[in-house]
């Protein structure tokens, strides 16, 4: 993770909604809480001292319940919302100091966005929608047609070029939204609850599509969601927001095993841990006393390990990548990992 360069970096970001945000900002810096601020000054604390590094070619998932400020946060990255204080560095440059022209160039060429409600242009065809970013840059239809068609095909929308968005189902509309973001050829993709409006089966399809695309494209993706399953499935780096502040961030497996806060503990309580936790997260270095029953890959989830053990509890597996042994997983460890350690956050 650390070997990857930081693409987007958020430093000490504050956003306060109200008539005099600067005055409210000093109070917040002096330690006033969100509820107190609302009560005393009727200012809403949207974001409170956010610090996040987003690495190149990785999916950073920002998760939180509604009202936690996650949609506000993602809109700061392309300055659809202006912050009250803080810095946003893209490729090391603070975009807050940029003028309108440079900002427009950033939005046109290096950041694309996918929206929860699709936000396609209803009076344009699917092809024209997919080519919207390039048309905005002044390219004619002839110039963007091939590129737009390529990405429409890639997201599974061949032959729908001349349909209008309202003729498509929700899932297909969001495919157009993704094709639109990909056609812009931006290396950063902002996805604001992109799959939340879709029904569960289609949502799973779209998540798989995104992972598949990411496999070959290696974009820097910032993904917003309120769904923990989705977050764990997609995230390379998970940021959990609550009341406008980061509660915990890190590798998703790490968060799942070591929740640092009762809030996160509640969050992860209903997760199917066998499906989410992977062998590499719970493996140990020391070789076991008994014999090795077989090999598993580090990315195998516990469900498949249990399946491989056929339910037997006394076996130990070796975790290997290629020929190299990374560690060992005993079935007892597996079983222990499946139940959540009560108040583990206080112990560690």
């Amino acid at each position: 993770m650390t070997d990857k360069t930081v693409k987007v970096s958020i430093r000490h970001l504050y956003k306060i909604f109200g008539s005099d945000p600067q005055a409210a900002l000093t109070r917040v810096r002096d330690g006033m809480s969100k509820a107190e601020l609302l009560d005393k000054t009727s200012h809403v604390l949207g974001l409170n001292d956010i610090n996040v590094d987003m690495h190149e070619g990785r999916i950073t998932v920002i998760m939180g319940l509604s009202g936690s400020g996650k949609s506000t946060l993602i809109r700061h990255l392309n300055r659809l919302i202006e912050p009250t204080a803080g810095e946003i560095l893209v490729n090391g440059e603070d975009i807050l100091s940029w003028n309108e022209q440079r900002l427009r160039k950033l939005r046109r060429e290096s950041m694309s966005m996918v929206f929860q409600k699709f936000a396609l242009l209803p009076h344009r065809t699917v092809l024209e929608n997919a080519g919207m970013a390039m048309a905005t840059r002044g390219k004619s239809r002839r110039d963007y047609e091939a590129e737009a068609r390529k990405w429409l095909d890639r997201v599974g929308l061949s032959g729908q070029d001349d349909q209008y968005p309202h003729q498509l189902s929700g899932g297909m509309q969001q495919r157009v939204g993704i094709a639109r973001a990909l056609t812009s050829n931006a290396d950063i993709m902002l996805m604001d609850e992109a799959f939340s409006a879709l029904d569960p089966l289609i949502r799973t399809d779209m998540q798989d599509l995104l992972l598949e695309l990411q496999e070959e494209l290696h974009k820097t993706i910032v993904f917003i969601t309120h769904d923990l399953d989705e977050a764990l499935k997609l995230a390379d780096h998970l940021v959990i927001l609550k009341d406008g502040a980061v509660v915990q961030q890190g590798e998703p497996q790490e968060i799942l095993l070591n929740p640092s806060d009762p809030y996160i503990e509640d969050f992860v309580a209903d997760i199917n841990r066998a499906r989410v936790l992977r062998a590499r997260s719970i493996m140990t270095d020391r070789p076991p006393q008994g014999e090795i029953a077989g090999d598993v890959a580090p990315t195998d989830n516990l469900e498949s390990v249990i399946a491989q053990a056929e339910g037997a509890l006394d076996r130990t597996y070796r975790v290997t990548r290629g020929d190299e042994a990374l560690g060992y997983v005993g079935m007892a460890d597996v079983m222990q990992a499946l139940v959540r350690r009560p108040s583990g956050y206080t112990a560690s």
Partner: peptide
């Protein structure tokens, strides 16, 4: 005109006149 669509137009870097003639007036 749907605020989401306007936001999308902004997010893809449309200028004011592109937004007016390409999005707002048609809609």
């Amino acid at each position: 005109v749907d605020a989401d669509v306007i936001e999308a137009a902004d997010a893809f870097g449309m200028t004011k006149s592109q937004k007016l003639f390409g999005v707002q007036i048609p809609l």
